[in-house]
């Protein structure tokens, strides 16, 4: 029974991304590439992106080849996505999130870093937003340190930094109306953990700042 519901869910997930998300991302929104596409081609990898909108996850998942879809798992806040039962079902089965608890509450049985590490050991491709939350639209907030801990725990896993711009204009936090804009996307060379957490963290920060400043944006305020 579990096997059948599992099959059914993965079919449903595939249909959702093929029929709804891909046309939405490619036709209604539209992406502009500012670098060659650099995304993992097999499991055990972390995609690290800045976070402005729920659409960030949609765009990143829809860019992955369909044969890898079952491995892609966005890391998302359990306290946000699993409170409402319908949202919980949708987030877990259709989006396929890996729910983690951001704060050290009672519900948090295991360390989120351990959960991520476990998923990576199963060959998953994690989508990780190191800012921790969507924040103000189109402003990059400080990266949180969790990503360095995860990288240290899995030093052989490659990290793929992706910078997204414009999705916070299309659908910012707190506004469900979707307004089409072309969105910019650029990819950095993947790298993995080297010596120190701080070194890794700084490399990630400077990579994002390079990606961010390589694109020219119109005013938005």
């Amino acid at each position: 029974m579990k096997y059948i519901t599992g099959k059914f869910n993965s079919m449903l997930r595939l249909c959702f991304f093929v029929i709804i998300v891909r046309p939405l991302v490619k036709i209604v929104i539209g992406l502009r590439y500012h670098s060659p596409i650099r995304l993992p081609e097999k499991g055990r990898a972390i995609i690290v992106a800045n976070h402005n909108s729920h659409l960030d996850t949609m765009v990143l998942v829809s860019m992955m080849p369909l044969r890898l879809l079952s491995k892609v798992q966005p890391v998302a806040a359990a306290d946000y996505f699993t409170t409402n039962p319908i949202m919980k079902w949708f987030a877990l089965n259709i989006i396929g999130i890996l729910p983690i608890h951001r704060d050290k509450s009672a519900a948090r049985a295991t360390d989120p870093i351990d959960l991520c590490q476990e998923a990576l050991e199963q060959g998953k491709i994690l989508i990780f937003f190191p800012e921790g939350s969507r924040g103000e639209p189109e402003e990059m907030s400080e990266l949180k340190y969790g990503i360095s801990k995860l990288a240290q725990a899995c030093p052989d896993v490659s990290v793929y930094p992706v910078y997204l711009h414009g999705l916070g204009k299309v659908m910012p936090k707190g506004d469900p109306v979707l307004v089409p804009f072309f969105c910019d996307i650029s990819f950095a060379q993947p790298f993995s953990y080297s010596q120190h957490k701080a070194e890794f963290f700084n490399q990630l920060k400077s990579t994002f700042s390079e990606l961010q400043h390589a694109i020219q944006y119109p005013e938005w305020d």
């Binding site: 639209p137 804009f181 072309f182 119109p218 005013e219 938005w220 305020d221």
Partner: peptide
């Protein structure tokens, strides 16, 4: 969409 994406717009 191209026009709105390249000119300054307000939140």
């Amino acid at each position: 969409k191209e026009y709105f994406s390249m000119t300054a717009t307000r939140k």
